[in-house]
Simulated assay, not measured.
Amino acid sequence: MHSVIHFFVELFILFRIQISIVRYQLIWILGMATMFPVVTLLFLEFIVGDMNAEKLARIIIGNMVFSILLMGMNVLAQDISHQKFGGYFTYYSSLPIRKINFILSLLFYGILTSLPSFIIVFILGQQVYGIQLHFELLLIPVTFISIFSVVGIGVSIGFLSPNPQFTNVVSQFLLMFVTFMTPVMVNLDQLPSILQWISYLLPTTYVANALHGMLTVGWTTTTGNELFILLIFSYISYLIISKKIHWRV
């Protein structure tokens, strides 16, 4: 019982550290997290012309996923990579903390930095395109699981990259590829066959499907299946991170 209490106290302290870091960087996070998704959202509004509510919803939700990718994968991967090679994690490795709590705190940091732009695009997108998206309380856990699955990829890239330069190239490439060459902004059937098959191997496909279902229809059995797949992706990401972090070395 004592070890369980100590586990959660330790995790709570690490979470508070990450909250403090986010609070200190809040202006930068808000600027970075909203600039590109909002610009993309407004740009698409200029060129889409007359579209039905279904396609407009796909554009808004696609930009919400883009905001998660930008902060939860791209920026987070680069941030972790720079901290790793700059020796920042030496401090944490010198503390009597569990590796699992250290990893969870990094994932928590990724969620915190991804949420602002996600919420802003959700609100602004409806105002820009003049449509009303469906909202129910189950959207909250769906959102957190969706972000968590993408954040896991960002943390994995940051720790597995051989140097920060490689991290920058890989994260930028994945951001562009996943956003525009998988069913994030468009439906799956609009893509070539080879891209459709590749899309099934990426969590963002299921993130987009789950959010699209929740924001247009609500909770369904299909949404539950999408979330189950995302939990599998999240678990795989955690296993990769935990195996590759050279703890206290």
Rank of each mutant, 00 (worst) to 15 (best):
L191V: 00
F36C: 03
V9A: 03
A77W: 00
K243C: 08
T167A: 09
G154N: 02
V75S: 12
R98C: 02
L44V: 07
I27N: 12
V142T: 15
F7Y: 13
G86Y: 02
S146F: 03
Y200G: 08
P141S: 07
L76W: 05
Q25H: 10
I13Q: 09
I61M: 05
R248W: 07
M51D: 01
F118Q: 06
L104K: 09
F46E: 02
I119Y: 03
I123S: 09
P164F: 06
T216E: 11
L124P: 09
I245A: 02
L195Q: 12
T220S: 13
A53Q: 13
P96S: 03
N63S: 04
S3L: 11
I245M: 05
V169E: 00
N163R: 13
P203W: 04
F122S: 05
P192W: 02
H134R: 12
I232P: 10
L227S: 12
N74F: 13
I245P: 07
H2K: 15
T216N: 09
N101M: 05
I153H: 05
L14A: 08
F43H: 03
I100G: 04
P96M: 01
I194P: 09
A210L: 12
P162N: 08
F228E: 12
T90K: 14
Q172W: 01
Q83V: 06
V4I: 15
G224K: 04
F233W: 02
L215P: 07
N63I: 00
I21C: 11
M185T: 15
G152N: 06
F7D: 15
N163E: 14
